[in-house]
Amino acid sequence: MIRFTTDKSELDLALIHGFLSQHSTWARGISRPLVERAIEHSLCFGGFVEQSQVAFARVVSDHATFAYLADVFVLPAYRGRGFGKLITQAALSHPELQGLRRFMLATSSAHGLYAQFGFASPARPESIMERYFPTLYQDSPPA
């Protein structure tokens, strides 16, 4: 059984930072202060089995028109139990994130998971641009 909360005081910041900085493919090398600042300015979802945090996701949003799902992970020992689906569902069904015109994410390996929730390649990719610095966390001094 997994329990989800958006109460930031319950989040295990050391665990979140450790996973993102050491084990993720998208935030390797990120500093703890940057993780804390990202959490501070996001709607966060912690997944807990008993008292231990085993999953995390955060959403950056204006709560009116747009949201971006980021930093979704389930610890390796807890994968294969549907927790990735459950934390994604928790984020997408949150009352403050309803009626949004656009909900985006980036993934290199979980297309099948997110497709189950209606995510697809952009309908008009020619209209989407980005500034992307893939080695920023490794190249920059800790912030």
Rank of each mutant, 00 (worst) to 15 (best):
T88W: 06
A57D: 06
Q53A: 09
E10R: 15
Q116G: 06
D62F: 08
Y78P: 01
Y132R: 12
V74K: 05
I16N: 04
R131Q: 14
I30D: 06
A64W: 05
D7P: 12
G99A: 07
S31E: 05
H17T: 14
L11K: 06
F66S: 03
F19P: 02
Y68N: 10
R28K: 15
A115E: 14
S52Y: 09
S52P: 00
A106S: 15
F45D: 09
F56M: 02
A64S: 14
T6G: 04
F56P: 08
V35D: 02
G118A: 03
P76E: 07
Q22W: 01
R102Q: 11
D139K: 12
W26C: 05
T88L: 08
T135M: 02
I30A: 07
V49C: 13
R32A: 11
G99V: 04
Q89V: 00
K8C: 07
E36Q: 13
F48A: 10
E36M: 08
A55H: 01
C44Q: 07
Q116H: 11
S121V: 07
L15E: 07
G47V: 10
P142L: 02
L100S: 02
S31T: 07
L92H: 04
G82K: 03
Y137G: 02
A67K: 01
T135F: 10
F119D: 04
L105Q: 09
A77N: 09
S31H: 05
Y114N: 04
G99H: 03
L20E: 06
Q53K: 13
G29H: 08
R32F: 15
M104G: 01
T65G: 06
A70M: 08
R124P: 02
Q51R: 12
Y137R: 00
Y68M: 12
R131C: 13
S109V: 06
D12V: 13
G18K: 07
E96I: 00
S93A: 13
A55Q: 01
R28M: 09
R28F: 03
A115S: 14
R37H: 14
G46L: 11
Q89S: 13
A110Y: 04
A77E: 15
T65S: 14
F83H: 08
E50W: 03
F73S: 00
